Amino acid sequence: MAIEPGTKAPDISLRDQHGQTVTLADFRGEKNVVLLFYPFAFTGVCTGELCALRDELPTFANDDVQLLAVSNDSPFALRVFAEQEGLDYPLLSDFWPHGEASRAYGVFDEEKGCAVRGTFIIDKEGVVRWTVVNALPEARDLNDYVTALGAL
């Protein structure tokens, strides 16, 4: 069961595609966070979603908002994926301990061994304000994110 709006966001600390540690708490008091979980790099729907975010990046990565995309891939795979697709925002690795962050947010599919498509809008105080979870084959609608961010 995914974390519901109104819940304090679990703090996570993961390595990005450059090997740097990114901690959710680092943005507290500074920025709202779009925390997006996706199954795997290099797959059709995931690539489409992440490239759509890339194309609208000023909406999701600016002085007020930070985009963090999390998958169960290794940081090394994420680096190649980011370079190949021109993704210039943090891709975080929930590879080891495998799925720990995805489980904390209730979006890890134990049978498939990966995160499902869960997105959480977290306000500057660290509270989840909006959540959407889609089945693996279903892409999310970026306009929903924009609406949720506008409501903060």
Rank of each mutant, 00 (worst) to 15 (best):
M1N: 07
A2Q: 10
A2E: 07
I3Q: 04
I3Y: 00
I3V: 15
E4R: 14
G6K: 10
K8Q: 14
K8H: 13
A9D: 05
P10K: 12
I12Q: 03
I12E: 05
R15T: 14
H18E: 13
G19M: 09
G19F: 13
Q20K: 14
Q20N: 13
T21A: 05
T21L: 12
T21K: 12
V22S: 11
V22K: 15
T23H: 13
T23Q: 14
L24P: 02
L24T: 05
A25K: 15
A25T: 14
F27G: 03
K31L: 01
K31T: 01
N32P: 03
N32M: 11
N32Y: 03
V33G: 02
V33H: 01
V34E: 14
F37S: 11
Y38T: 08
Y38M: 07
Y38Q: 06
P39A: 07
A41W: 00
F42Q: 05
T43Y: 00
C46T: 13
G48R: 12
L50T: 01
R54M: 05
D55M: 11
E56P: 01
T59P: 02
F60V: 08
N62V: 09
D64W: 00
V65Q: 04
Q66L: 03
Q66F: 00
L67P: 01
L67N: 05
L67R: 03
A69I: 11
A69G: 15
V70Y: 01
S71G: 13
S71W: 01
S71M: 05
N72R: 10
N72C: 15
N72E: 02
F76I: 06
A77D: 08
A77S: 15
L78C: 14
R79W: 03
R79V: 01
V80D: 10
V80W: 08
F81K: 04
G86T: 08
G86M: 12
G86D: 09
L87P: 00
D88V: 15
P90Y: 10
P90K: 07
L91Y: 01
S93E: 03
D94S: 04
D94P: 05
W96Q: 12
W96M: 08
P97N: 13
P97M: 09
P97H: 12
H98M: 07
H98R: 12
E100F: 07
A101D: 01
S102N: 06
S102V: 05
R103D: 01
A104C: 07
A104H: 03
Y105S: 02
V107K: 00
D109C: 11
E111Q: 14
G113D: 11
G113V: 08
C114R: 02
A115P: 09
V116Q: 12
V116P: 00
G118W: 05
F120L: 07
I121C: 03
K124P: 07
G126W: 02
R129I: 04
R129C: 10
W130K: 04
T131C: 14
V132W: 03
V133M: 08
N134D: 03
N134P: 01
L136S: 09
L136Q: 05
L136R: 05
P137F: 05
R140A: 11
R140G: 07
D141W: 01
L142Q: 07
L142M: 15
N143A: 15
D144S: 13
D144M: 11
V146L: 10
V146S: 09
A148L: 09
L149Y: 00
L149F: 03
G150F: 02
